[in-house]
Design a protein around this nucleic acid. Structure first.
Length: 271
DNA sequence: AACCATGCCAACCGCCGATCA
DNA sequence: TTGATCGGCGGTTGGCATGGT
């Protein structure tokens, strides 16, 4: 990456860029410049504003500290709940999670998570190994599912896929439906629900989520690798909460080690 | 009072993908 | 097509504050 040297902070010292905490004067210069010319072109901001800082450093300072509308102070219990839920959905996608917490930065959320939840995460490290094993085992099964579903382009065809799945799963008493809240074909790809005796036992929501049903019951592992981007599909928090509620329902249907509110780190079968 | 552990947070690092000439 | 540049991301570090011994 030699071409990146002028941008990389790692080269800051070689370039003579200043490092370390920002001074009030530097903040003032950056603020004035961005207010006048807008965000972007960070490397020229550094030069034009008379800042002896790398463009990357300027961007970071603006995004995490100077940007208008940033919230200060402690993360509220409500916000914590959202962080927990969205982390359960997407893992360490801090910038994605931050989009659902107005005024909070990805850095802030990341720091908060590290401070408050990292310890709990460690305890489930062993369980992660088990999950990885399961993942490998089921990869082939999952690939088959992806190729089947992604070959269809509209809802009718997707419903046929569901029928096909139903037929294949008849022996196990498993039925397949589409999640009722979906409105686009893309959503349908990621919203197939699996039922057993009228109970939802698995779903395909989110790229990073693998919902494993009780091994004794079915042994299915599904992940449609739907690359969910909240900016593109305009999903709001209430929709997220619907999904989370659904996930909690799913969780209670599994053989979980902890309560459904804490399934994200209980070593349950969602990961 | 001094030391240590821990929490917190701003800032840096390294990498990757998009864009552009 | 290729290399340079830019923007953004997640991971990590280091310094300060605070509380306990």
């Amino acid at each position: 990456m030699m071409g990146m040297m002028s941008w990389e902070v790692g080269a800051a010292e070689k370039q003579g860029w200043r490092k370390g905490p920002w001074t009030h004067e530097e903040d003032k210069l950056l603020n004035e410049y961005v207010n006048l010319h807008g965000e972007g072109r960070w490397s020229s901001v550094a030069r034009s504003a008379g800042l002896n800082r790398s463009g990357k450093s300027c961007r970071l300072r603006w995004v995490n500290y100077l940007r208008p509308g940033l919230k200060r102070g402690q993360i509220t219990p409500q916000e914590e709940g959202i962080i927990i839920e969205l982390h359960a959905l997407w893992g360490n996608k801090w910038s994605t999670i931050a989009r659902y917490l107005p005024g909070r930065t990805d850095n802030e959320i990341k720091n908060y998570w590290r401070t408050h939840f990292k310890k709990r995460e460690k305890s489930s490290h062993k369980q992660e190994k088990r999950k990885a094993q399961l993942l490998k085992q089921k990869q082939q099964q999952q690939d088959n599912m992806i190729s089947r579903v992604s070959s269809h382009a509209d809802t009718d065809k997707l419903l046929k896929v569901a029928d096909q799945e139903n037929h294949e799963n008849q022996q196990n008493n498993i039925t397949v439906t589409m999640h009722p809240s979906t409105s686009t074909v893309e959503d349908h790809y990621s919203s197939i629900l699996y039922h057993h005796d009228n109970n939802v036992i698995a779903s395909n929501w989110s790229s990073d989520q693998y919902y494993v049903v009780d091994e004794g019951l079915w042994g299915g592992l599904w992940n449609l690798d739907h690359d969910h981007d909240p900016q593109n599909d305009h999903m709001d928090t209430s929709h997220i909460n619907q999904i989370i509620t659904m996930q909690n329902q799913l969780a209670t249907g599994f053989t979980f080690g902890g309560d459904s509110n804490n399934f994200y780190n209980t070593g349950g079968y969602i990961f």
